[in-house]
Design a protein around this nucleic acid. Structure first.
Lengths: 314, 314
DNA sequence: GGTGCCATTGCTCATATGAGCAAATGTGCT
DNA sequence: AGCACATTTGCTCATATGAGCAATGGCACC
């Protein structure tokens, strides 16, 4: 397309999109046939002269979603565009995840949830009455054994309350210091019951953490900074339901993993509906590990993360 | 439109504009009728959820142009969008003016031109062979009496050469110190001949200057900074073909004007095709004076200037 | 519980538009 | 020049779409 043609295409696009003329009228004005106008408009779109964008906090990128589904054989994917001011990104992704849960059919009877900042944001983004009577069960420990509910409990309880359902909490720390302690807690009737329920959930909702100082596992005192150094040395790129994985989605530190109480990764892998919510540059690596190793069937993320996943091909 | 409907509209817009589905298919997916889809899309456009923009250096704002034509009873108007990096604005406006001249029919036989940075930029933006054999005549003095051609000459010569036509220069300063000198020069056969030709031009091209230190009249030594102070005191908002006007388009300083050699404003006002090229915040005031006082039949400008002209109503 | 009013919905029908194809027009090569 | 080939153009026809209108469904007010 030479420059003259291009300028004509620009005029045509202005008349069509800004002035709402028909292609026929435009042809009359510019002295070309209506078919030529149609072709010029098509080319103008192709070459990015005409840019159509959907500006809305709830906007999504369906094209990218399709690519993610195909590339990683996911049941579904939700990608939100990255707003210019990227502070909002996390909130938008959380909102998108909430929307996804709300729209999901059949409504899950039992929803297994992890905990952390991301999942908590999803809980807060849910509308009241997003569903009816969902039993929300924690899939990994996050509560101290004291009675006062922490953030982890808040997440599950919020999701359950907003559907007028009940929350079933896992009364255990995420990581125990000694294997024996873990086994003892596991064999407790209550805990075992919760774990059995968690194993049967019709849907799981979880995010991932990164092995650095911002990790909520450090914040809650389960791990020390030195532990993370060690984990990174062993190839850990992040944690999923409290379990640290390497770039291939394998357990990074089996010793540590044995002391981690909650749903196992293999259980997650064999589940039908596992919704993975993730956003932000820092989590690109762990997101890759999750989608490539089949830990999730559904991903909800921001466009930048999605593009990163699609770009460096496996 | 409530929030739920709005989100559906967003989905519809994504499917329609990004995924190229038909409204019928979208209706199927979203569980609504195709008419509802059509209505939602229309509303999404209206409410700015769907934003369509034409991104191109040669883009124009036809809607604003129409408003300008109607409001100021112009024969024509050309408005270029303001690019984000506004340094380009001047160049784009000059290009638009060049395009306008090139497309103008019938091709002007004689083109009267003013001089200055803006008009010079137009000259440079013209394509070689933009027209055939146009006689370009200067309409106000800009050359010193010395033989070396300055910028003013360059402008006229460039425009003429690019059409394989000839340039007719006005060998006189723009403003003379004494009235007698001006009259003497005016009565010179050559000068009188050029002025007669200028008066008969089939089209005029000019810009406007502002009465401050950046004025090319100061740069070329015709006026001193103190003269401009005086002019501003007398209400001058800028100059057109070397003549300073107030906000109403009247001569700001008759004494000075009598010593200014070139086409008079009344001649400009009675001409059929007077193309006024102007851009930039600083020239908003003088632009208003020009369009409201009928000095031009055609304006070529940037969107910001156009909006400013339209906003504070007369 | 009626009753009139306004907003929303589903529809008919005329029009606008894109896909696909044949004719025409370039374009490079011998 | 003559030919093969690619590109562009103008067209037919099926489909998509918006305008306009009747039917429907809330909703305030009596």
């Amino acid at each position: 397309m030479n420059e003259t043609t291009e300028v004509i295409a620009v005029r045509a696009a202005e008349l069509y999109y800004d002035e709402n003329l028909s292609q026929d009228e435009i042809g009359g004005l510019l002295g070309i046939t209506r078919w030529k106008v149609g072709r010029l408009l098509a080319q103008a779109k192709e070459r990015g002269i005409v840019r159509i964008e959907i500006v809305h906090p709830r906007a999504r990128r369906l094209g990218v979603e399709r690519q993610l589904r195909e590339r990683f054989r996911l049941a579904d994917a939700v990608v939100v565009p990255v707003p210019a001011v990227s502070a909002e990104t996390g909130a938008r992704v959380a909102q998108a995840a909430a929307d996804y849960l709300t729209a999901f059919r059949p409504v899950p009877r039992t929803l297994g949830v992890s905990w952390g900042r991301t999942v908590d944001a999803v809980a807060d983004s849910l509308e009241k009455d997003w569903a009816r009577g969902v039993t929300v069960v924690q899939i990994n420990g996050g509560v101290s054994l004291s009675r006062r509910p922490g953030t982890a409990a808040h997440t599950a309880v919020t999701i359950a309350q907003k559907s007028a359902g009940q929350a079933v909490l896992l009364p255990s720390p995420a990581i125990l210091e000694r294997l024996e302690t873990k086994q003892a807690i596991e064999s407790d009737r209550t805990v075992a019951g919760v774990m059995a329920l968690a194993a049967e959930a019709s849907m799981y909702l979880f995010s991932a953490g990164v092995p650095d100082a911002t990790s909520i596992l450090v914040e809650n005192g389960y791990l020390a900074s030195a532990d993370l150094d060690e984990l990174r040395r062993k190839g850990a790129v992040g944690d999923v339901v409290g379990r640290f994985v390497d770039a291939n989605g394998n357990i990074a530190d089996p010793g540590l993993d044995e002391r981690t109480l909650g749903l196992g990764l293999s259980q997650l892998r064999s589940a039908k509906n596992t919704v993975f919510v993730v956003s932000g540059e820092a989590k690109h690596l762990v997101a890759r590990a999750v989608v490539t190793s089949g830990l999730c069937t559904v991903i909800v993320t921001d466009e930048a993360t999605a593009i990163a996943l699609l770009e460096d091909a496996p």
